[in-house]
Amino acid sequence: MLPVTPTDFTPLASLAGGVLIGVSAVLVMALFGRVAGIVGITAGAVTQDDRKWRIAFILGLIAAPVLWMLATGGFPAQTVSDNLPGMAIAGLLVGIGTALGSGCTSGHGVCGLARLSTRSLVAVLTFMVFAALTVFILRHGFGAGL
């Protein structure tokens, strides 16, 4: 699906970025009293009465690489697959799955685990296992030729 692009092991940058994500999640709780699940915020931007902060949050996410470019002179490194049918299927599965399962990497992952929610722990283990299996099949299994 996506040609294998080697990436460097970056524990310090990844830890620092993770802490920033955590600070953002804490801000959302301290200011708005809600968990910072991206899918919940995305859906709530359309369906909830109090939608302004949710729309603004999504705009903040979208603006981040623009600010990054203004500060560093270039967009962040990124390799996105050009297989458009594959990306269409991926997006559809991510959308249906996170809506049905009430959360994604942030809602169940970061916020749910921080709340010590069993439901979120089960969700995280499930999507991690299925994601790793999918990558294994696409890169090393019968899907390697796709």
């Binding site: 990306m87 991510v94 996170t98 499930t126 999507f127 296992v129 994601a131």
Partner: peptide, 11 residues
Amino acid sequence: GAALFGIGWGI
């Protein structure tokens, strides 16, 4: 839902 999300994330 979590399983479908995982598959899409992996693709």
